[in-house]
Amino acid sequence: MPSFSAESRPIVVLVVFPDAKLLDITGPMQVFSDAKICGGEDYEIVLASAEGGTQLMDTGVALLTEPLERLRGRALHTLLISGGWGARAASQDLKLLQETVLLADQAARIGSVCTGAFVLAAGGLLDGRRAVTHWYSCDDLASQHPSVKVEPDRMFVKDGDVWTSAGVTAGIDMALAMVAEDSGRKVAVRLAQTLVMYMLRSGGQSQFSSALLSQTNDASGRFDALHTWIGDNLARDLRVDRLAEQVGMSERNFTRVYRKTTGRTPAKTIELFRVAAARDLLEDTSLPVATIAHRTGFEDDERLRRAMQRILGVSPSEYRKRFGIEKD
């Protein structure tokens, strides 16, 4: 791992290519740029590409970049590969791969945003490591690179000094986590506040909220209003007959149509919503687990524990330990 003098600014290299997603670049770039004003590191940010010069992004915006080869021999703090529609082609660019592998040896840590993981994987930099990419591309990453341990339902994954993340906002979350690693959690929280982020999200969180997942599965939007009502009434009696009454259907017809439309039973949806709400309270409050269980519609903390263990693979206390906000 390269060493850094106290006088040198940590160098963050953002690797871009034609048709990269602009927000995959500017999101993390903004985080690293603003870290100094929140008491963090004063990063030197470099945009680089295989050939250098102007690179056209997916939005039509052109970015001026340095050739990657000019960075050879420099001690790099972070090497971050952007994602987007052009990432698949970039993963076949031999010059880009060669330079990326060379610079990875000079970097204290490397990472990717979204489909930038395909570039790291093509260079062998994810072999034997846990990784993630955008949910839409996780299956492709796993099938094309079987030596990569893809974890499809994660915001971002840190495996040693190698980081990978899901879509656009997850890249921002990952950059904030990197700042937290460099300068402490307080700085990262302050930075998230300046960016008007709702919260500082941890990598182990799901790429989907339960509400978003329900909307995604229910492409017609037929039950959107019901899902909103469920989210607002988690502590109430939400048996199937009550849900059917809410949408003006018979219980039998509602159960059949709901499952056909969303791919899951009403009871499963209720459980997902309740676990998601409990997860938020575990992250953001110091409320006792029993109180959280009551507020989210579980009859007791044991039922909450079993549901979280089944869905997230972790108990409420362990989840809070890993992802809860530290109190000053």
Rank of each mutant, 00 (worst) to 15 (best):
Q193F: 02
A180C: 01
S8W: 04
V196R: 12
D224A: 15
E326P: 00
Q98H: 09
L71T: 00
L126G: 06
Y198F: 12
M155H: 11
L126D: 04
V13K: 10
H294C: 05
N233M: 06
V157N: 07
L304K: 04
V289W: 00
V168M: 10
D19P: 01
R305P: 00
V168T: 02
G203L: 12
R320G: 12
T261S: 11
V314P: 05
L80R: 03
A211F: 09
I172E: 04
P316F: 03
A48F: 04
A104V: 08
A35Y: 02
G128S: 02
A62E: 15
R242Y: 06
R74D: 11
S165R: 03
K158P: 01
I325D: 09
C38F: 05
G248S: 01
S5V: 08
P67R: 00
E251R: 11
L191K: 09
M29Q: 10
T54D: 15
V196I: 15
K95W: 06
K36P: 07
R88T: 15
I25M: 09
A211H: 13
M174R: 06
G297H: 06
T255M: 13
G324Q: 07
V162F: 05
H134T: 10
L14H: 09
A177H: 04
E41Q: 13
A117R: 13
M308Y: 11
Y43R: 03
K149V: 05
E271H: 00
L14P: 07
F4Q: 03
A89L: 10
V189Y: 10
V179I: 12
S250N: 09
R201I: 13
S5W: 08
H294S: 12
V168H: 08
T164Q: 03
D140F: 10
G39Q: 03
D328G: 08
G40R: 02
R9F: 02
G60K: 11
E302M: 15
L272W: 06
A211N: 04
V150Q: 02
D127L: 05
L63F: 09
S315C: 01
Q246A: 06
D173C: 14
A6M: 06
Y136K: 15
L226E: 05
T285Y: 04
L56T: 12
A121W: 04
V15I: 07
P18A: 11
L96N: 02
Q30D: 15
M249S: 15
L282Q: 07
F32W: 05
R279N: 04
G53P: 00
D105Y: 12
T269I: 03
D328P: 15
T285G: 00
N217R: 14
R305T: 12
L47F: 13
S214G: 15
I37E: 10
E326S: 07
K321C: 01
